[in-house]
């Protein structure tokens, strides 16, 4: 899938609008694709903020600005492998 290859080959992070432009699709469709790829195990939410359990007991949790910063996704090992090889 081109999306996985674009992430794997990217030298740095990609913003949703830019990725949508490169794929030639709308952002809504890209979000849907990301949801599907997360469900299928090729992408994983990388958790920009405190939605992860690790922050549960953080003393700074109340005033932390990380949760509102951004939502991130990254390739899983399965996603990295699929990006490098033909899928069928």
């Amino acid at each position: 899938m081109r999306l996985l290859r674009l992430i794997a080959d990217s030298n740095g992070s990609l913003a949703l609008p830019e990725l949508a432009r490169r794929l030639g699709v709308g952002e809504a469709m890209l979000e849907r694709m990301i949801e599907d790829l997360v469900r299928m195990g090729y992408l994983a939410p990388a958790g920009a903020g405190c939605e992860q359990g690790a922050c549960q007991h953080c003393p700074q949790r109340g005033g932390c600005s990380l949760p509102s910063a951004a939502r991130l996704w990254t390739l899983t090992p399965r996603g990295r492998k699929a990006a490098q090889t033909p899928v069928v």
């Binding site: 794997a8 990609l14 990301i34 920009a48 509102s68 991130l72 990254t74």
Partner: peptide, 9 residues
């Protein structure tokens, strides 16, 4: 260093 897809608010 992995790359990310980022949703900007």
């Amino acid at each position: 260093s992995p790359s990310f897809i980022m949703e900007l608010p």
